[in-house]
């Protein structure tokens, strides 16, 4: 199940907070085994879109499907295939790393013994085995993020969402996390949607969705976006596109 479907389909999604439009007619796909970047400045609508994909908010206009399962109609099937790392830290600081992972495992119905085995495995993958019994509040920012990534991988999702996962981290920690997530795409063929406002995290071959003020300005390979914008690279393309009328075109 899931083979012929994209990992994520966002089809004509719009969302408003009262009279303020946060997202307008957003459509894009994330393929399994691909690293896609949702690029936008703060306030572009990235977090709102993540809340819709994870069903924290209901999609009123448009459709969101995860491996073919509609998030609104089959939330259980959609969410069990999804792992998420939110911009805000979501570890329980009073619990140890492994207790945080066990709690997550329970929320996915994973047996305790199986959860312990999986926890050991994912903690080793993110290089946190030595801190498994440390209280979450004693971890550094980078370690917390890695613990959250380990937790998001525990139930073996096939789509991973990361919202500004490197925000507030130093250069070394940022590079380490990015490298790890890119490695996951290659090793596990997991689909990744990486939301960021940091252009230096994008590589030329990445699929990019350029979001600005709730609208998609352009989407496609980073190199293709640069070419279409008649810019030297994605950085220059982003500057150019977001400068046009302060808004954008779809």
């Amino acid at each position: 199940m899931g083979g012929p479907h994209p990992a994520l389909e966002v089809l004509g999604v719009s969302y408003s907070y009262g009279n303020r439009k946060a997202l307008e007619n957003i459509s894009f796909e994330v393929e399994p085994g691909s690293f896609s970047v949702l690029l936008g400045l703060n306030g572009a609508g990235k977090s709102t879109l993540y809340c819709l994909i994870t069903r924290l908010y209901a999609t009123r206009f448009g459709k969101i499907r995860i491996f073919g399962f509609d998030v609104n109609r089959s939330p259980g099937e959609a969410l069990r295939r999804l792992g998420a790392v939110f911009q805000a830290r979501t570890l329980d600081l009073d619990l140890t790393v492994v207790q945080n992972l066990s709690y997550h495992a329970a929320l996915h119905g994973i047996p305790a013994r199986e959860a312990r085995l999986r926890a050991d495995l994912v903690l080793e993958q993110v290089g946190l085995s030595a801190s498994r019994n440390a209280k979450a509040r004693t971890l550094s920012g980078g370690q917390m993020r890695r613990a959250e990534i380990a937790r998001a991988l525990l139930h073996r999702p096939r789509l991973l969402l990361l919202d500004e996962a490197t925000a507030g981290l130093d250069i070394k920690a940022r590079a380490g996390i990015l490298k790890h997530v890119r490695g996951l795409v290659k090793q596990s063929a997991i689909g990744v949607l990486w939301a960021t406002h940091l252009i230096d995290e994008i590589e030329a071959g990445d699929d990019v969705v350029l979001l600005h003020r709730g609208r998609i300005l352009d989407k496609g390979k980073a190199s293709a976006i640069a070419e279409r914008a008649d810019a030297a690279d994605i950085h220059a393309a982003f500057e150019k596109l977001t400068a046009v009328d302060g808004g954008g075109r779809q």
Binding site: R55, L56, L79, A84, A88, H108, G109
Partner: peptide, 9 residues
């Protein structure tokens, strides 16, 4: 958020 994005109803 962790609780609410669990696949259980």
């Amino acid at each position: 958020r962790l609780l609410l994005i669990s696949p259980f109803p």
